[in-house]
């Protein structure tokens, strides 16, 4: 189904963010789809562009199941892979898309949030209020696009989504924020090298993946990057650095060899 890409206007976005707690939070909290659709169908607030995309609805049920997440990532990528990174970094795009085409999925995700800090989480997943880079991996829709962007492995002709599937296999949101906020992942081969290293260490039964697998890998490469141009490393060299050093870092669940 061909649809037009939408953006919110600068003026509306400004007002939406300033007044979010007071005027919009309850709409998203209560899943008031009708009122949200009314606001986001106002041409003063939402601009329809001349760029078309192949819209596919996201699966809203059982999203804790990683197979559902993978299907949603594939759907978003299939629909929107043509976006340039600078376009996909735009808050104006994702605020519009989440409250129009992907509203059912967005509201379902918000409804499934636990009671602790629910209002804060609704805000963070709807507007960008955690810094530009982090916000891309907290927003309910942009996180799907960006995981695909960084982890699609075009060098693997059998299954280019193999690292995507690995990454979202467990609870991935925290890992996504911890890992992808780091500057060096903008170099895709470094990101692929790191995730592949973590994947291999777990498949070789040398460790159990946890949040520290990603945050410590970041620290290792950031330390190296303090004295070395990381961008000169190949994917395999980045992988080797992580594989050779990660198990010695703190809080990694190293598996001892069976006697």
């Amino acid at each position: 189904m061909k649809e037009r890409i939408k953006y919110v206007s600068d003026t509306f976005l400004d007002q939406f963010k300033v007044d979010f707690e007071e005027e919009y939070l309850e709409l998203y909290k209560l899943g008031n789809k009708k009122e949200i659709e009314r606001i986001f169908s106002n041409p003063q607030n939402v601009i329809e562009t001349d760029t078309f995309f192949d819209f596919k609805p996201l699966i809203s049920n059982n999203t804790a199941d990683s197979t559902v997440t993978i299907e949603n990532i594939k759907s978003i990528w299939s629909s929107l892979s043509f976006l340039a990174p600078v376009e996909a970094e735009s808050e104006k795009l994702w605020v519009a898309m989440e409250s129009t085409y992907y509203l059912d999925y967005h509201l379902k995700q918000l409804a499934e949030l636990g009671p602790q800090r629910k209002d804060t989480s609704i805000m963070s997943r709807t507007i960008f209020n955690n810094g530009q880079k982090r916000s891309l991996f907290i927003n309910n829709i942009s996180i799907l696009w960006w995981i695909a962007y960084y982890l699609i492995d075009d060098d693997n002709s059998n299954d280019k989504f193999h690292l995507v599937e690995y990454f979202v296999n467990n609870s991935y949101r925290g890992n996504a924020v911890a890992f992808f906020s780091s500057n060096f992942v903008a170099n895709k081969k470094l990101a692929l090298g790191v995730v592949e290293a973590i994947k291999e260490l777990t498949e070789e039964h040398k460790m159990i993946e946890n949040r520290y697998s990603y945050s410590n890998a970041n620290k290792i490469l950031n330390q190296v990057g303090g004295v070395r141009m990381l961008d000169l490393l190949t994917r395999d060299e980045a992988k080797a650095i992580i594989k050779n050093n990660l198990l010695d870092t703190e809080h990694i669940r190293v598996l001892k060899k069976a006697i």
């Binding site: 400004d14 007071e22 955690n130």
Partner: peptide, 19 residues
Amino acid sequence: MRVSATKGKFMVVDTDGDV
């Protein structure tokens, strides 16, 4: 700088965004 509302009891300065 923008002035907005919060459900909290105290005035808060939020520097996490672009504004």
